[in-house]
Design a protein around this nucleic acid. Structure first.
Length: 576
RNA sequence: GCGCCCGUAGCUCAGUUGGAUAGAGCAUCUGCCUUCUAAGCAGAGGGUCCUGGGUUCGAGUCCCAGCGGGCGCGCCA
């Protein structure tokens, strides 16, 4: 068991003994903010004492007296207002490193309570280019999925593609009257996008075109063969585009049930909500009102428009119900931008009335916008939305220039591959490293910077380790079990080892709050500890035992970095 | 008008159940490449955490009010 888990467990038992019946779930340890205090601390005893009007230092002393941590801690001390500081015994730290070296763990443990989680993210639209607005959802959703799976949860990813709706009326008019077939073959998305914009603009000055679009839409919805055929072709062309982007990003979905999949469920759903008295007619539409929910009081949810058509609230409700009956998830996570908060509050509120018995957790993991360096929504110079494919191309191109400068002796193919890993990694990392709820300013110079909290800096730390192993002629240390006398002496060695031990702690926090940036910060600090070690502690030039110890630290650091990157969806290169 | 979010170093941002002396990168300044990749390291300066109250042993974090900014608010998604 990892040392901090062991401490936590014993601590909870001790608290239970001193304060029978108290809720010890919140009695947790975390790394000390400053190593001078120790390795781990708990401040939970202060709040327990407060709630009981006890003397916090006395409580801490009483708990300490009940604690036996001689096998893993050098000292346990009461400090300050009632902190309890734990300093690990060097042997406990070494033991943990050796377990990791033997492959018994990588400083994290799988959950003891695996749950089924459905993650809904990305959701691009048919016949439109994927753009900058899709990137955060895609990358955050993918990383959240990877982290959950690493900790042993069962995850189903479902891409809720926008493949139905009023835009198809205009698209059909465009396709039938203005289609440029050669252009469609070369650049299908661009052509469909052009058709939509063309008809949309024409409709603004000519009501007849709008009427024509409505007619085509109605025909499609009624199952007209010709329109369905065109619609299916638009879907296939779009899916090919999505697949190319997802392949570049290394993102996979278990399911891609678009909005159209739920068409047949919408009318029955509205009828059921009306029959149950949850929804009612209002100004010609069908709406759900929330008189009893203060912040939704002024915001009823429309589930059927006055013209009889359904909207995305209807579809989302049908989708939610389908997912629940199909996969029985304990939780459904929606990864979308902040502007949809009200929408999801409405969806969740309607759903709770509709299925009050359902135990499922519904979570809206929302995120802020990507801004340009002028602080306004990120656009091209001409004011167009930035296409995702172009963004990725530019990232690779810029990375290629840097790699070529720094490492001109590598072959072009090698430099291209490194540029791909660094460029895509940099775009992803920039998105994941900031608090997802803040807007962030997109800057090529910052995300491809070679220092600071960036993908290239972290990837570089990894290549330095790999370089040591190449030079040593060893692939790895071979597990390090042949070095039972592992001892850490230099302060940089100890700082690095201590940080390695906290990987799992951080991973759990990142998953609990769906905040990959916790993991990014951890990896940045790990890379910092490593480079500091690298500068001060020669590895290959060290004498036999010290050399083996240092090689082991290198190997474990590389493994944690690689594993950390992997759950962020970022690749590593052997050299840069 | 109502609701949500934000305001931390010159700039861009972190800040984990409220917790110990508020951190990082950039920029500025000072050192370090006959030594495992200097895409690096070591160090320095730089703060009324928007303002004012409150709760608390303890507030950047919680509550209230105000100022400033972003976003959302029935037939788009």
């Amino acid at each position: 068991m990892l040392p901090h888990k062991l401490i936590e467990q014993r601590l909870q038992h001790a608290v239970q003994a001193i304060l029978p019946g108290s809720d010890v779930a919140a009695v947790l340890v975390r790394p000390c903010p400053d190593p001078k205090f120790g390795d781990y601390q708990t401040n939970a005893l202060m709040s327990l004492a407060k709630a009981r009007k006890m003397n916090p230092r006395q409580l801490a002393a009483d708990v300490t007296a009940k604690l036996d941590l001689r096998d893993c801690c050098e000292s346990v001390e009461v400090a300050g207002a009632g902190f309890l500081n734990f300093r690990l015994a060097p042997s406990a730290m070494v033991q943990s490193l050796q377990e990791a070296a033997r492959g018994e763990h990588l400083f994290f443990e799988k959950t003891v309570r695996p749950r089924t989680v459905l993650v809904d993210f990305s959701s691009p639209n048919v016949a439109k280019p994927m753009h900058i607005g899709h990137i955060r959802s895609t990358i955050l959703g993918d990383s959240i999925t990877r982290m959950l799976r690493l900790l042993g949860h069962r995850v189903i990813t479902d891409n809720h593609i926008g493949d139905w709706g009023t835009q198809f009326g205009k698209l059909l008019v465009g396709w039938k009257h203005h289609l440029d077939l050669p252009a469609l073959q070369i650049e299908p998305i661009g052509e469909m996008d052009r058709l939509y914009k063309l008809v949309n603009a024409a409709g603004e000055s000519d009501p007849a075109i709008l009427e024509q679009s409505r007619q085509e839409l109605v025909k499609l919805q009624r199952g007209d063969e010709e329109n369905l055929k065109i619609w299916r072709e638009m879907l296939a062309l779009s899916q090919a585009q999505f697949d190319r982007i997802y392949q570049r990003l290394g993102v996979n979905f278990d399911k891609a049930l678009g909005e159209s999949f739920y068409n047949s469920r919408l009318q029955p759903l509205v009828r059921e909500l009306c029959d149950k008295g949850i929804a009612r007619e209002s100004e010609g539409a069908i709406a759900v009102f929330f008189k009893d929910i203060p912040h939704l009081k002024a915001n009823p949810a429309l589930i059927q428009k006055s013209d009889g058509a359904f909207n995305y609230t209807t579809t989302d409700l049908a989708t939610l119900a389908y997912r629940l009956e199909t996969w029985l998830p304990a939780e459904i996570v929606y990864v979308t931008d902040a502007r949809q908060q009200l929408h999801f509050q409405q969806i969740f509120a309607v759903f709770r009335r509709w299925h009050p018995e359902a135990k499922v957790n519904l979570t809206h993991v929302w995120f802020g916008s990507i801004l340009g360096e002028d602080g306004k929504p990120f656009k091209t110079r001409s004011g167009e939305t930035i296409k995702l494919a172009d963004l990725l191309d530019e990232a690779e191109e810029r990375a290629f220039k840097v790699v070529s400068e720094k490492n001109a002796e590598l072959s072009e193919a090698q430099r291209r591959e490194i540029a791909r890993i660094v460029g895509i990694g940099a775009v992803k990392y920039a998105d994941l490293m900031s608090n997802r709820q803040s807007d962030y300013v997109f800057s090529w110079d910052k995300l491809l910077a070679l220092n600071g909290n960036t993908a290239p800096y972290l990837q570089y730390a990894y290549t330095r380790i790999r370089s040591i192993f190449r030079k040593s002629g060893l692939e790895t240390t071979g597990g390090g079990t042949r070095n039972p006398r592992l001892a850490l002496a230099a302060t940089q060695e100890i700082a690095l080892a201590r940080h390695l031990l906290n990987f799992g702690l951080v991973l759990e926090a990142a998953v609990d709050e769906y905040r990959p940036n916790f993991l990014c910060n951890y990896l940045f600090e790990l890379a910092g500890h490593f480079t500091s070690f690298y500068e001060n502690c020669p590895v290959l030039k060290a004498e036999s035992e010290m050399r083996a110890n240092r090689l082991l630290l290198c190997e474990l650091t590389a493994r944690v970095l690689k594993q950390g990157f992997e759950v962020l969806g970022i690749e590593t290169a052997e050299q840069m």
